[in-house]
Design a protein around this nucleic acid. Structure first.
Lengths: 343, 343
DNA sequence: AGCCTAAATGTAAGCGCTTACATTTTTTTA
DNA sequence: TAAAAAAATGTAAGCGCTTACATTTAGGCT
């Protein structure tokens, strides 16, 4: 083979160059910084690109340019509407900036997450989105060594020295818990996701304790059931709560899905919500309003979070900016699942 | 620079080779086909890899090996639980085979989809997952020319000569519609997603017509409202139905989300479901059981579909297999939103 | 017209890896 | 024990692109 058409018949830069009668450098420039090429030449080259239906070879481009225009994200699971939403916005914003999304999920498993992070970086991700701060220090070390800009979403803590766009999980939950307490509830219980390597859940639980402490209740006197994500999981946990602490009058869940499970268990058990017991959630996803009764919860601006995270990543990448931080605000959504304590 | 450490301080294959005192070829073999390297050498090399924390350069690897181990998917949106679910399973299966997912969304827009397909292919995807058959022929031509194995999911049509894993949207809806008719309903209406470039929606609507025809009703006498995806969109459509065809006794929606919207509109209008009017969905996502009343719908094995699609793609890629096809079965889930016609 | 500057284009050296082929070492076989 | 076969390793040629630097061309000024 003397020309540069590879055996696949897939045209290369050199093919385009030959057809347009210019050098490969010119073709490359036409594609990457057209303003640096004369109008005539450019048109001729573009025509050749068209005719040959040329597409740059990704590997070659990545190798030579030292970047892939690809941004990665590792989330717990897309089946959680919360992440699906945030990620959708994240991806849309990425596209707007000519980046592509490389995606992996960890199933809330720290080891799997680490593995996925390494894989995605090995796949040439120019940047990385991670959920929450909690993870082994060596992952952060690895990321630093590989110089992969990383943004944390869903959590926000000014003391953590890393780019993040999130909200104060703890304060948000405190605020909600105060509302609950204001409704006359003293015997609270909490249904939480596993808190190991999940600072969001941990902070939310802590938020409830803060609220108790702030009104003089014993913060340590709080039943916390940890259970995996899922409606049925929430159902079981609710039953557990009533077994372990029958005098509970308000069950605060760290997310809407668990709360919907609690609601369902209550219905099955003939317990009226909110008359007999109040239930709250967190996130404000669609099922919160669909539930019977509608769920009192904390509204989180998921889409905005995703969008901003993308912006931040792109910013950092292009300008090597110093640590950025963005705190989003959440809002309590009072709905029927929370009522006054009647006991 | 005489050694091959690049300026970033990121180690290269050559660095590892030097440290282990072998050639780059041996290092490469250690990484890619360890069985072809002697035990001692291998251990020495692996040690060096460890010590240097070496990670292969993606671009270089892709360029030399002519594959990226990356599989792409273009879906309408992750915010639709149906796709989130299928995609989650798809991604998990990919990981199991050492592949990574490149993801983009089209927002149900044909042009955007085409653009995304081209982008992902340009990003070096070794394979592609697409939703439904409907798209411009030049996309298929492009894919064929670029030799990118492609699998269609969510639709299944033995006459289409392309690898697919899906189900018979039309037959499934026919079956459901027959059930509806069996409940005494004659005046049906349909709330559909836009059917242009969406064969799934189109087939489902056609399925209703088939059912009508099969019992001697006029298939063309069917009110169809097309509306975008979303609960509120479903609400509006439901009102429209009752305006356009007040004698409707059963509203069949092409997906659960629209159906939930219909349910909500009914509640707001003081129309009882199923006493005054019946409503059905399609997909059987979580909100179908959460809705009040629970939704009669068609259960689709989303996760299995995602998983199988991944398998198929991997199969095709490695063995250049001929067209494969996999039809999954759906199931009617009868729940309270469908009741006998009382009019 | 002649010189200087800027714009356009070309030349060619990598980027870091894989792999065909060549060479060396080890094992097997008669 | 020597020759043949197999296993291990090395050599070096790309893979297709970007880009620093060199060269040519086109304007702009005096």
């Amino acid at each position: 083979m003397t020309d540069n058409t590879n055996d696949d018949g897939i045209p290369t830069l050199a093919d385009v160059a030959r057809h347009a009668n210019v050098s490969t450098a010119t073709v490359s420039r036409c594609l990457n910084s057209p303003e640096r090429v004369g109008k005539n030449t450019r048109e001729r080259v573009m025509q050749a690109v068209q005719n040959l239906a040329y597409t740059p070879n990704f590997g070659a481009q990545a190798l030579a340019a030292r970047q892939t225009n690809t941004i990665a994200a590792v989330i717990p699971t897309m089946e959680n509407a919360v992440f699906a939403r945030g990620l959708q916005a994240f991806q849309e914003e990425l596209v707007r900036h000519g980046k592509t999304l490389l995606l992996a999920s960890s199933a809330y498993d720290a080891d799997l997450e680490e593995q996925q992070v390494r894989t995605l970086v090995a796949r040439g991700a120019d940047g990385l989105l991670l959920i929450g701060y909690d993870r082994a220090p060596d992952i952060y070390a690895f990321l630093a060594k590989q110089k992969v800009p990383t943004v944390i979403a869903w959590s926000f803590n000014p003391e953590e020295n890393r780019p993040a766009v999130g909200f104060n999980n703890r304060a948000a939950m405190t605020e909600l818990a105060k509302q609950v307490i204001r409704h006359g509830h003293k015997h609270l219980a909490c249904i939480s996701a596993p808190t190991a390597s999940n600072d969001r859940a941990r902070e939310r639980v802590a938020g409830i304790r803060d609220a108790k402490a702030s009104v003089g209740l014993n913060p340590n006197d709080l039943l916390v059931i940890e259970t995996p994500y899922g409606i049925e999981s929430g159902e079981r946990a609710f039953r557990q709560v009533l077994t372990d602490a029958p005098n509970t009058t308000a069950v605060m869940c760290v997310n809407d899905v668990l709360a919907v499970g609690a609601l369902r268990a209550a219905k099955e058990m003939g317990i009226r919500v909110p008359d007999d017991i109040s239930v709250t959630g967190f996130d404000d996803i669609e099922i919160a309003t669909l539930a019977e009764p509608p769920l009192t919860t904390v509204h989180v601006p998921h889409r905005e979070m995703g969008r901003r995270a993308a912006d931040m990543l792109i910013q950092i990448q292009k300008s090597d900016l110093t640590v950025q931080n963005l705190e989003l605000t959440t809002e309590i959504r009072l709905r029927q699942s929370l009522g006054p304590n009647r006991n």
